[in-house]
Amino acid sequence: MTPKLIAIAGGTGTIGSWIVRALHTSPLYKPIILSRAISTHSSNTSDTTTIASSTDPSTKETYEIETRYVDYTSIDSLTTSLTGIHAVISALLIPSEKMIEYQLNLLNASIAAGVTRFAPSEFALSQEVHKQVDIDYAKIVVWDAVRAAVQRGDIDAAAFPCGMFMNYLAVGFAEGESERRRKSALAGFSEGALMFHPSPGEGGAPWVEVPLTEEGSFPDVTMTDIRDIGKFIVAALGIEEPWGGRELGMAGETRNMVETITIMQEVLVEDVEVRTITRKELQQRLDGLAQSDILPRIDVQYTMACGRGGSVVEGVLNRLCSEVKPVTVREFMEEAWGR
């Protein structure tokens, strides 16, 4: 059987590269990376990109993947590059108005090229929660267009929320062999800490900021390892029934923050300081930030969303694709910090 071609927009990024790795291991699919044209590679040309099989520096295995260079501002250019493609998975990360333009062009080019399935860049919160985060308005615009295309019968599509990246639990600092394992668990994730601060090497005890619910309790949080996202996407491609413009959520594990903190303490063999914060206090923190403070505002708004239950994602793919066994919080913590 000839493998189906799957194009990954942003396939060299953190999430995209793990989708590429997962597709590479399946005999049913062949990944194609879409990358923005540059001075050395004009649009509608192709080359090969070397992908490491793991972010663990002790693992030297690599493989070559075809890269097609595209002009995301041109639907015609994208349509040409998508000839013969079965599905397009977007993992683009462009925090600007171009995120809308690029993804809508990618959607329309997919339709023009006869692509069967499309997934916009998601891999975070559920659609309803995007209304609580300023920068996520772009995702709402794109998803509305995607659903409209599905309703017209132009293409099949789905969004793939995954909750909070479990890899936040590996942010910090360690030494020697522990540092190697921590970096491997990060899986290329390079963002700063958010709510969870597990590193015992930062000059104090590990700590967690807990956004309290309206009732004053600890919220539940869905966390998924970035490395498992690719596995879920491969499994989703094998679903025979239409994606149908649905949110096909994936969940590494959903736990109350009390349980996660307990696991942190057991693995780190150290008390974890708990710092609770109310909605009112978070709002005051947000009000103290300028509109230009984009990243700090995102952190506060995501934390606020978590306190409202917005970090919980229904594991639709967990039910539909039971062959995928995602990493649990305890397994991840033991990998990153286990002694």
Rank of each mutant, 00 (worst) to 15 (best):
G11V: 08
I15H: 01
S26M: 11
Y29V: 02
I38E: 07
S43Y: 02
N44T: 07
T48Q: 13
T55M: 14
T55A: 07
D56E: 10
D56W: 13
S58I: 12
T59P: 00
T62F: 08
E64P: 04
E64G: 09
E66R: 11
Y69T: 03
Y72C: 07
Y72V: 01
S74T: 12
I75C: 05
T79S: 14
T83R: 15
I85L: 06
A87D: 05
I89M: 12
L92V: 11
P95K: 14
S110C: 06
V115T: 12
P120F: 08
S121T: 10
E122I: 04
L125N: 05
S126L: 11
S126A: 06
Q127L: 13
E128Y: 08
K131A: 11
D134E: 12
A138V: 13
K139V: 01
V141Q: 09
A145P: 07
V146M: 13
V146Y: 03
Q151T: 14
A157C: 07
P161R: 10
P161C: 03
M164N: 03
M166A: 06
L169R: 07
V171M: 09
V171H: 02
A174Q: 12
E175D: 12
E177Q: 15
E179C: 10
R181G: 03
A185H: 04
A187E: 02
A193F: 04
A193R: 14
M195A: 07
F196S: 04
H197W: 04
P198A: 05
S199Y: 09
A205L: 15
A205R: 15
V208N: 01
E209W: 06
V210K: 00
E214V: 14
E215Y: 04
E215M: 02
G216E: 05
G216M: 05
F218M: 03
M223Y: 05
T224N: 06
T224G: 03
A236H: 08
E240D: 13
G245D: 02
G245V: 08
G249K: 04
E253N: 09
E259Q: 15
E259Y: 07
T262W: 02
T262I: 00
T262V: 00
I263H: 03
M264C: 07
E266L: 06
V267F: 08
V267A: 06
V267H: 04
E270H: 15
K280L: 02
Q283W: 11
R285E: 13
L286T: 04
D287L: 13
G288I: 08
L289N: 06
Q291T: 11
S292H: 11
D293S: 14
L295M: 13
Q301I: 09
G310P: 05
E314P: 04
G315K: 06
V316W: 01
S322R: 15
V327M: 15
T328H: 08
V329D: 01
F332N: 00
